[in-house]
């Protein structure tokens, strides 16, 4: 049984940088941000800075879940921001312009996300295009497609079901928190409850060996992109519900980069292989926590970008083998 303990330690170890970063952030706030840990229940709803962080971090957490899978196969998906925009536009136009039921709108958005993922998957796994290039196509064209759906307008809606996605509470807990938690649980069940996680890691770590061992590496890669597309469409629904509108121009803008950062911070190997979904969510929470903390300390949101840049570099350096070798030599 010491072995399983060791396995658990390794699994946690992958998420360690993200966990440590979140821990540092919490410690900082404990010391310098009065009231950061206060939780209040107003009108039967949970409120407070911590809740706020998780609530706002949900979108990036969703993207990071899908991104972690894709990166683990040795790829990357630059199109998630654009897919968010398409998904939001799909749902909004279905409800506002075609009078569809909100459930049909949600289903439509998810289907569009899956289709976008399948397109990326076909290019990468089928045609053998480099992932960066393949997903760049949709990154460029995706927002155009979203605008095509919305007719270039910001399509507003007011539908109780769609509004509930971002604004609702269940048992006092905000919906985004529940959705992100649900997605994490589903992701864990899908990857660790089946052999999919093993296949993804084997494919990303040594594709030729995985193929020779009988793993269907192309199908595994395609599946990762499809899952990533679906996760992005859920994130798109959240973002649209937040502003009760589909903004094809700005929904999810630059969030692909946050998602990559969160996944890598969460212990997913950038060259493919091991991944950690828990770590990806922690990474997303760290990014949001950082933003919120800086905001609470009246640091301008612009400086936040600079801090983020520092975080990206720190993460890069932390995972760089060459830096490790260099430090090890000293």
């Amino acid at each position: 049984m010491r072995d399983s303990a060791r396995a658990a330690v390794r699994a946690i170890g992958r998420a360690a940088p993200a966990a440590a970063a979140v821990g540092l952030l919490l410690a900082f706030n404990a010391a310098f941000t009065p009231g950061f840990f206060d939780l209040a229940v107003a009108d039967g709803r949970l409120a407070g800075s911590l809740v706020d962080v998780v609530n706002r971090g949900a979108v990036v957490a969703l993207l990071a879940l899908g991104m972690a899978l894709v990166i683990a196969t040795g790829g990357v998906d630059l199109s998630v921001g654009a897919v968010m925009a398409i998904a939001g536009a799909t749902a909004a136009t279905l409800v506002a312009q075609h009078g569809a039921s909100p459930w049909a709108a949600i289903a439509g958005a998810l289907a569009v996300g899956a289709a976008a993922g399948a397109f990326n998957g076909a290019l990468v796994a089928g045609a053998g295009v480099q992932p960066i290039v393949a997903t760049l196509v949709l990154m460029v064209a995706g927002r155009g497609a979203a605008q095509l759906l919305t007719g270039g307008q910001i399509v507003t809606f007011n539908d109780p079901v769609l509004n509930f996605i971002d604004g609702g509470f269940v048992a006092g807990v905000p919906m985004p928190v529940l959705i992100a938690a649900g997605a994490l649980a589903l992701g864990l069940a899908l990857t660790r409850g089946t052999a999919l996680g093993l296949f993804v890691e084997a494919t990303g770590d040594n594709e030729r060996a995985a193929r020779l061992a009988g793993v269907r590496v192309r199908a595994v890669k395609a599946a990762a992109y499809v899952l990533c597309g679906v996760a992005a469409s859920v994130a798109g629904l959240l973002a649209a519900s937040d502003i009760r509108a589909a903004d094809a121009n700005n929904a999810g803008l630059y969030l692909e980069l946050d998602a990559i950062l969160a996944a890598v911070l969460g212990g997913t190997a950038l060259r493919g292989g091991r991944f950690s979904l828990v770590g990806a969510v922690l990474g997303a929470l760290f990014i949001q926590g950082l933003t919120t903390t800086l905001y609470l300390h009246d640091v301008s949101p612009n400086a936040t970008l600079a801090v983020k840049a520092g975080a990206v570099l720190a993460v890069c350096l932390a995972v760089s083998e060459r830096v490790r070798a260099w430090v090890g030599r000293k």
């Binding site: 093993l198 296949f199 060996a209 009988g214 269907r216």
Partner: peptide, 29 residues
Amino acid sequence: KAEAIVPGLSVRENIALAVQARQGWWRPI
């Protein structure tokens, strides 16, 4: 190194890989 060992995976996962691949992803060992 190039075609057989999956270096980042554990001994357990490396040994189970081919059997698992044959069973398919939905029937995990």
